[in-house]
Write a protein that binds this DNA or RNA. Structure first.
Length: 827
RNA sequence: GCGGGCGUGGCGGAAUGGCAGACGCGCCGGACUUAGGAUCCGGUGGGGCAACCCGUGGGAGUUCAAGUCUCCCCGCCCGCACCA
């Protein structure tokens, strides 16, 4: 065999052979237990970046490992292929069509994935921009529509002026567009929504089922859903036939209400100020606040500002007249857009009241303390006893909450209420490169869904991509003009397309039957493969994609289309790939391209480094020298195996009889390594320590090779080399396959069963135990392995060195830890 | 502000409450060599000639024993952010 490790030749050779032999093709069903290993599919942005390489290397180790363990593994790949960058490229360069741009990128990135040697079943590849796929995205939209879960409404929505489209709440980070960081604006638009809020409680509750998800992701979703319990209370407006409904988590403090605040956009504001001397000032204020963008509007450090409307409302519990104000700190979108002001027991109300000299009334007295509104420096939100609250005096906070709610319900003044921060999912996008929303508007019949047999509603190819703020499809008469499916009259198509998160909310079902054309998927196959056993991807999708996918799955369950309630049993969120302590980015100029690394060192080195440099959840610091180290290691493996490849298979596959000395030690290490690598991959996904165990095995095999041939057992050497290759195979599939062949094996290493360690092999006759005196290591003793704690103690105390050290001291206690150490406590 | 995570050699990182620093990088020394930035072997937390002592962000505590558990503090990272 070749003296040199020629990765270029080897990797090309095996990639071609694997493809020719369909090594990674997955039959639809099998008697073996199934395992669905899925990595988040990429947006085809151009070329792979290191984050992709990390994601897919991790997934590949898991898929290969599970396959070798005997599972029937589904490991597919596809493309989240609709989206803005394609369209932006078309706008920028003029002559490139988003479809062509996308397909070019897919070709490039598919080739790159193949170069990495990832074990995908490419026959199952899907692309969300393919009509055969988005037909079913549209079909699913219709199912939601028929179920009343897709609806159109006019609302103040997040508008990104740079992307020239609306965004879902989830796509707004710190008041700015998640994609381009442009501050978002509010626009009143009529848009399509999915009623995800109808599933808020289930999405929250079922987080408990997700035992295999990181706590962090579950907490983020929990916070995002933002459940809070309280009450809705109705305040009558004085001298007017109107009422203001507030949501509060503290109905026990209603007697402490000293004012009422409305959001500037609250629909009642105009009515309240009409004809009042305050009207102009209030209108000015509302206008000013509305013109601010989200960042300026919602930053916490913004000074609270408010104005009196001139109107009053009536506290339903004590009949008091309280002034109604408008203020910038009240949000229309949350609760009812109105807040009762209880300065004594809410910090925001407290600050606001101090600023505007509004009265502060204590209605909860903390234990062992007397709150005085004059001297208070902050609101008291804790538990205590109700005071100044009429019939409720003397109750605790929690008793008060229950009692007030009961009273409100009895008198018809309000009711207990659960509120969520989660809003409905806005799915309309004023862009071209997405799945058209399958809806037709007819002057006679109104909103008419496209009949299922007319799907897909195809995207027209020739469209002008001007970013005008409305969908480019609106300027395409051939697309817009149609006939009403109901009355046959002239009608217009919906021109907005769907949020691409809709496309990615169901792709993991499609992989099971990617070319099915009568249904979105084959039910038997979905029932067989789903849920995904292991999902792997970046934590940036903790809310967006993962929440939407959970929502979709629950809807599909309710529609009877799937039999599962949660799509992803186990989730692994991989850390970022950093260079010089920062995320790789073009603007920072610290990008390392996978292409260059693969060209210089090969795919096996690239994969190995990425898996070795850090555990998968943690951020990974890129190191060129670290890559060199992994390359050196593979060369070392190459030379080791090359030096013994010749007659390796002439030895028996495993040693027979009782082994002694170096042979026994080597045999033992082989099995310890099998144990460690199996546990590190299988139980904890600690690939870095698995690799280091394999490195130790290689170091030991080098030593063993130097042992004179007369003292060496060729069966042990064979066992060591073969297991080294098998254990390394999921990490470095090409070099191990080549060496496997070079040592005389006929069948692919990737079809070999994962080895089990022999418990007999790892037992020891003698062990070294540590002797501590007052917790400090003072001696080591070699003892028989089966020694009892009492014997351990005896042996240790008999050691001359121990006797010397405890001489003249009193032994207070001796603690033997079986098989490990003995600690002697002396005074 | 709230929630979560992290802090260990020169660096990436190992350590079911039981020998801190596995493995790799870097560095130092040696071997081979005309030469090597290839390869192989050895060394490598700090102090001390040594016995020993000191060391896991800082401080306290629990324990025979703490990187690991508890409390307080400091620093960095991530998420949410006036959510009533």
């Amino acid at each position: 065999m070749n003296e040199r490790y020629d990765f270029k030749e080897i990797e090309a050779k095996w990639q071609a052979r694997w493809a020719a032999e369909n090594l990674y093709k997955t039959p639809d069903f099998s008697d073996r237990p199934k395992y669905y290993c899925l990595e988040m599919f990429p947006y085809p942005s151009g070329k792979l970046h290191m984050g992709h390489v990390r994601n897919y290397s991790i997934g590949d180790v898991v898929a290969r490992f599970k396959t070798m363990q005997g599972y029937h593994v589904l490991h597919p790949m596809g493309w989240d292929a609709f989206g803005l960058p394609a369209e932006n490229a078309a706008i920028k360069h003029g002559n490139v069509h988003p479809a062509d741009w996308t397909m070019d990128n897919i070709r490039t990135m598919r080739a790159q994935l193949k170069q990495l040697g990832i074990s995908y079943d490419w026959d199952r590849e899907v692309a969300t921009c393919h009509p055969g796929y988005y037909k079913w995205t549209q079909w699913l939209f219709l199912q939601l529509y028929h179920k009343g879960l897709a609806y159109k409404k006019k609302a103040a929505v997040n508008w990104c002026p740079s992307c020239a489209t609306v965004l879902a709440n989830e796509q707004v980070k710190e008041g700015a567009c998640e994609r381009c960081k442009t501050p978002v604006e509010k626009r009143e638009l009529e848009q399509w929504f999915f009623k995800i809020t109808a599933y808020a409680e289930r999405l929250l509750k079922d987080l408990e089922l997700l035992k295999g998800w990181p706590e962090k992701v579950k907490i983020m979703q929990e916070n995002w859903i933002g459940r809070s319990e309280g009450a809705e209370i109705r305040f009558k407006v004085a001298d007017m036939d109107e009422e203001i409904v507030v949501f509060t988590t503290r109905p026990d403090t209603v007697f402490g209400v000293t004012y009422m605040v409305l959001a500037p956009e609250h629909p009642l504001v105009e009515k309240l100020v009409e004809g009042k001397p305050q009207s102009e000032a209030v209108r000015d204020f509302v206008r000013r606040v509305r013109n601010l963008n989200e960042i300026a509007r919602t930053a916490t450090d913004v000074e609270k500002e408010g104005l009196f409307t001139g109107a009053y409302c009536i506290n339903p519990l004590n009949g008091e007249r309280v002034p109604i104000l408008v203020a910038n700190y009240v949000l229309l979108e949350y609760g009812t857009g109105a807040v009762m002001g209880v300065p004594a027991h809410d910090q925001r109300d407290f600050e606001f009241a101090r600023k505007y000299n509004l009265p502060i009334r204590v209605v909860i007295q903390p234990p062992g303390e007397e709150l005085d509104p004059q001297t208070m420096t902050e609101a008291y939100a804790g538990d205590g006893v109700m005071v100044n609250s009429g019939q409720f005096n003397g109750l605790s906070k929690d008793e008060g909450i229950r009692a007030v709610i009961a009273y409100l319900e009895e008198k018809g003044l309000g009711r207990g209420q659960v509120n969520y921060r989660l809003r409905d999912w806005l799915i309309s996008r004023q862009r071209y490169w997405g799945a058209p929303i399958p809806i037709i508007y007819c002057d006679k019949c109104g909103i008419v869904p496209v009949p299922e047999e007319d799907l897909p509603v195809l995207l027209p190819r020739d469209v002008e991509f001007k970013p005008t703020g409305q969908s480019p499809l609106a300027d395409c008469p051939e697309f817009v003009n149609t006939t009403c499916p109901r009355c046959g009259g002239l009608a217009r198509r919906e021109t907005d397309t769907m949020d691409t998160f809709m496309c990615s909310s169901w792709y993991y079902y499609r992989y099971t039957s990617p070319r099915e054309d009568k249904h979105p998927w084959d039910r038997a196959r979905v029932d067989y493969w789903l849920p995904v056993d292991q999902y792997i991807g970046g934590v940036e999708h903790a809310i967006l994609h993962l929440l939407y996918s959970r929502f979709f799955t629950k809807v599909l369950y309710d529609l009877g289309l799937v039999g599962i309630q949660e799509p992803f049993t186990n989730l692994l969120t991989q850390g970022m790939v950093l260079k010089d302590g920062a995320k790789m980015s073009k603007s920072r100029g610290n990008v390392v391209s996978p292409e260059e690394i693969v060209a210089k060192y090969g795919a096996d080195t690239a994969r190995l480094f990425i898996l070795f440099a850090a555990p998968p959840e943690r951020d990974l610091e890129w190191s060129d020298q670290g890559v060199e180290g992994c390359y050196r290691f593979l060369n070392r493996v190459w030379r080791l195996v090359a030096s013994v490849a010749g007659g390796l298979l002439e030895a028996p596959p495993k040693p027979a009889g009782k082994l002694v000395g170096v042979n026994r030690q080597m045999h033992r290490l082989i099995h310890l390594t099998i144990k460690k690598v199996t546990e590190d991959i299988g139980n904890r996904f600690n690939f870095n320590t698995a690799v280091s165990a394999i490195m130790e095995l290689v170091n030991a095999l080098y030593q063993y090779k130097e042992v004179p041939e007369t003292d060496r057992d060729p069966a042990v050497l064979r066992e060591g080399i073969e297991h080294l290759l098998i254990l390394l195979a999921p990490f470095a599939p090409h070099i191990t396959e080549e060496l496997w062949e070079a040592t005389g094996h006929r069948e692919s290493i990737h079809k070999q069963p994962w080895p089990a360690y022999d418990p007999e092999a790892i037992v020891e006759d003698e062990i070294t135990i540590v002797v501590q005196i007052n917790g400090r290591v003072r001696e080591r003793v070699l003892v028989p392995a089966g020694i009892t704690p009492a014997q351990m103690q005896e042996v240790v105390l008999a050691q001359p060195r121990v006797q010397k050290l405890v001489e003249g001291k009193q032994i207070v206690k001796v603690i033997p830890v079986p098989g490990k150490l003995v600690n002697i406590v002396v005074k």
